[in-house]
Design a protein around this nucleic acid. Structure first.
Lengths: 214, 214
DNA sequence: GTCTATATGGGGATAGAC
DNA sequence: GTCTATCCCCATATAGAC
C-alpha cells in the first residue's frame, strides 16, 4: 500500500509535468492523490518544498547510476581511464533509459527536468545544478583527457553542446516525432543512446577551428 | 514614442522570460508598462492572445532571416546547393545573434523560446512548431543532400540533436557560465556560432553505426 | 482609447477538532 | 495523521463612465 507521502509525490510529478508548477494547484494535487488538502502542508510544509522533493526523489539515484557506470568503466580500462565513448555513454545512457522507464517516472520526469530550468523561482534550478556539480567533478577530467587539443574555452563549449543534445533528447521526444514526420521515436532507448553517442563523440572530437582571443 | 501596444509587448516579454507565463499576472504586466489594467484586454483580448503576440513579433523576422541566408548561399554556390557548413550556419547564426541583440529582445526572447515548450497550455507550442515547418521544408533537403549515407531514421535523429545543441546554446547561457566555472560566455556571438557549427557538422557527418531494425 | 470599479472565481496556508 | 472550515489574498475579465 502506498503511503500518503508517496501518492502526493506521484500525483505532483504527473501534474507538474503536464501543467507546469505555477499552473498546478495544491488542490489539484491532493484531489488526484485522493488525500486531504491539508495533508500536503502537513507532510511537505509548502508547495515549494513538495516541488523540491519531487526532484530529489529521482535525481539522486540517476546520478549515482551514472557515477557507478563511470567507475566500472575506469576499473575495466587499462590505465584506469575509460574511453571517450564509454564515458559519454555512462553520462547519457542512464538518463535516456530512465526517460523510457515508466516505473521511475518515465517521460514525465524528463519533462520536469526541462521545466526546472525554464520555469524558475521554485528553487529547483539550484538543486539540479548542485547535483550536477558532482557529475562534473568526475566526468569532466575524463573528457578533458581525451580532448587535450582543444582550448579550454572550446572544451567547455563542447560540453555545453553535449548537454544540450542530451537534454533535448530526453525532454523533447514529441518534437522528434514532429520533425521526423513520425518516422522516429524513443521506444528503443539503446538505439537512441547509440545514436546520441555517435553524434556527440564526433562533435567533441572535431578540430578546434576557433581562435581564442589573445 | 512607443504605443501602448508596444509597451505591453515589451513588458510582457520581459516578465514572461523572468517569471514564466502562469506566474506573471496581467497586473504586473500593465504596471510595468505604465498602462491601465484594462488596456491589456482591450488591445489583445486576453492574456493568452498576448502571449501569442509576444512570440509572433520575434519569430517571423528571425525565420525570414534564416531563409534569406539559405537562399543567398544557394545562389552563390555552384550547382545551387550550399555546403553543409553554410546551411547549418544559416540556421543557427541568426538565432544566436538574436540572442545577443538587446534591441530585439536579446536573451529574454531566447529564454521564452525554451519556456514555449516546457510550460504548455498557452497555445505557444503549436505556434512555434508551425513556424518551424517552413524552415524544415527548406533546410532539411539541403542537409539530406550532404548526408545521403545515413538511414532516414538516423538522419532525423541527427537533426534532433542539432536542434538540441542550438536550443540549449540559445536558452542556457547561464548554465554555460556554470559548467565552465565562468571561463566561457556568449558575448562573442560569432565565435559561438563557429564553435556550434564545428560541433554540429562533425556530429552530423559521423558514420552511421546504428543498425535500422529490419 | 483610457479609466474606475467591480464581478466572480481560485489560490496557498492554517487553526483546531478528532 | 487526518479532517473541516476558514482566513486572506490575488487572479482574469468586463461594464460602463469619460
Amino acid at each position: 500500500m502506498s503511503t500518503t507521502k508517496d501518492r502526493l509525490l506521484d500525483s505532483a510529478e504527473q501534474l507538474f509535468s503536464r501543467e507546469g508548477f505555477s499552473s498546478t494547484s495544491v488542490r489539484q494535487i491532493t484531489a488526484a492523490a485522493g488525500v486531504n488538502l491539508a495533508a500536503l502542508n502537513y507532510h511537505f510544509g509548502s508547495k515549494e518544498q513538495l516541488i523540491s522533493a519531487v526532484f530529489a526523489r529521482r535525481l539522486g539515484p540517476l546520478n549515482e547510476e551514472r557515477l557507478g557506470l563511470l567507475e566500472r568503466c575506469s576499473r575495466e580500462s587499462e590505465g584506469g581511464v575509460p574511453s571517450l565513448r564509454a564515458s559519454v555513454t555512462a553520462l547519457v545512457g542512464p538518463a535516456l533509459r530512465l526517460s523510457q522507464d515508466p516505473d521511475r517516472g518515465g517521460e514525465r520526469f524528463m519533462l520536469l527536468m526541462g521545466r526546472a530550468f525554464s520555469e524558475p523561482g521554485h528553487g529547483v534550478e539550484e538543486l539540479v545544478l548542485r547535483q550536477f556539480e558532482e557529475l562534473a567533478q568526475r566526468f569532466f577530467p575524463v573528457f578533458r583527457h581525451h580532448l587535450g587539443d582543444l582550448s579550454e574555452e572550446t572544451f567547455f563549449w563542447r560540453i555545453h553542446f553535449l548537454i544540450g543534445a542530451m537534454a533535448h533528447t530526453m525532454a523533447a521526444s514529441k518534437r522528434l516525432d514532429f520533425v521526423s514526420g513520425g518516422c522516429c521515436s524513443l521506444d528503443n532507448p539503446e538505439a537512441a543512446v547509440g545514436r546520441l553517442v555517435d553524434f556527440v563523440v564526433a562533435g567533441l572530437r572535431a578540430p578546434d577551428r576557433v581562435e581564442t582571443k589573445p
